[in-house]
């Protein structure tokens, strides 16, 4: 029987095989497959992006001279974009910690204030909040620097969304941690500061990374309060010279590259956390 002969062959091969050699070959073939996947991925991207670039170039409407003149000006908005985003995420995190503690409070007024904050902020458009801080508050005699307005509005808004992230992070800490802290006679405040929050922050770091990447894009909205960040520069030069296509394209590419860059940073941080000796 052919089948029997075939399996006898396989058995013979097995007997002669060296396990170390088999393991090496398996690893090699897996590595080959991974390499192949990556190469195909890159080629596909190059084809697609190259195709788009060619299509744009073929329209003959892109004025490279104009771009050469104005691209540096638009690029000058990048540090502003990053600065606004970093400052805003830092303040948003503070709002979120306070908001989360409020949302977990057993004091009705504290809980009510935190809930109102989250509800109001999430129930109104970010752009309305930003312009409100900039244009409406001065009617009450509150005049803030545009930069302060922009950062405050972004932080206040993101803080509300991140409140729920932090609340979930705090609630993810096992009950035993609370009990251990109580049994050691720690006060509630000490327990929160020293035991619960440090662990909760570790848990929510990946989520904060996502919020930060979203923040980079939403920071374009502070152009409405005349902060001269990337989008403001692109749209202003674009409309002044009727070259919005070029300038907005540059702005879009900048935002895209920034988000790719910070996604890589985020991946690194997450890997560092995963490999950390601290196991929550």
């Amino acid at each position: 029987m052919a089948g029997a002969i075939g399996s006898q062959d396989a058995l013979d091969r097995l007997r002669l095989a060296n396990p170390a050699e088999i393991i090496r070959q398996v690893a090699e073939s897996r590595a080959r497959a991974r390499r192949g996947f990556r190469i195909l991925f890159v080629i596909t991207w190059l084809v697609l992006v190259g195709g788009m670039a060619t299509a744009i170039a073929l329209t003959g409407r892109v004025h490279l001279d104009f771009l050469a003149t104005w691209a540096p000006f638009i690029l000058g908005g990048v540090p502003v974009t990053i600065g606004v985003s970093i400052l805003s995420i830092v303040f948003a995190t503070m709002f979120a910690v306070v908001g989360a503690l409020g949302r977990l409070s057993t004091h009705a007024p504290v809980y009510a204030v935190a809930t109102l904050y989250v509800s109001m902020v999430r129930g109104t458009p970010l752009i309305v909040q930003i312009i409100f801080v900039y244009l409406a508050l001065p009617q009450f005699g509150i005049v803030l620097d545009p930069f302060v307005c922009g950062v405050f509005a972004l932080a206040f808004n993101y803080g509300a969304y991140m409140t729920e992230i932090f609340r979930a992070g705090i609630q993810a800490i096992p009950r035993g941690q609370l009990e251990a802290a109580s049994a050691l006679a720690m006060t509630d405040r000490m327990t929160m500061q020293r035991i619960i929050l440090p662990q909760a922050i570790r848990i929510v770091i990946p989520a904060i990374g996502n919020e930060f990447i979203a923040m980079i894009k939403d920071s374009a909205l502070v152009s409405y309060v005349t902060i001269q960040e990337t989008f403001w520069r692109a749209s202003t030069t674009g409309s002044r010279y009727f070259r919005s296509f070029e300038t907005l394209l540059v702005a879009a590419i900048i935002y895209w590259l920034l988000t790719i860059l910070f996604s890589l940073v985020q991946e690194r941080i997450e890997r560092r956390l995963r490999e950390s000796e601290v196991r929550l």
């Binding site: 251990a180 049994a183 720690m186 000490m190 662990q199």
Partner: peptide
């Protein structure tokens, strides 16, 4: 609780603190 200390079934060590920090946290702060 300062007089009666408990050892738990699930240990409940603080995972973000080193062993020595687990031990000195409450004596110092409490």
């Amino acid at each position: 609780r300062l007089r009666a200390q408990m050892v738990f079934q699930e240990f409940n060590l603080f995972p973000h603190l080193r062993v020595i920090e687990n031990l000195i946290e409450a004596p110092i702060r409490v």
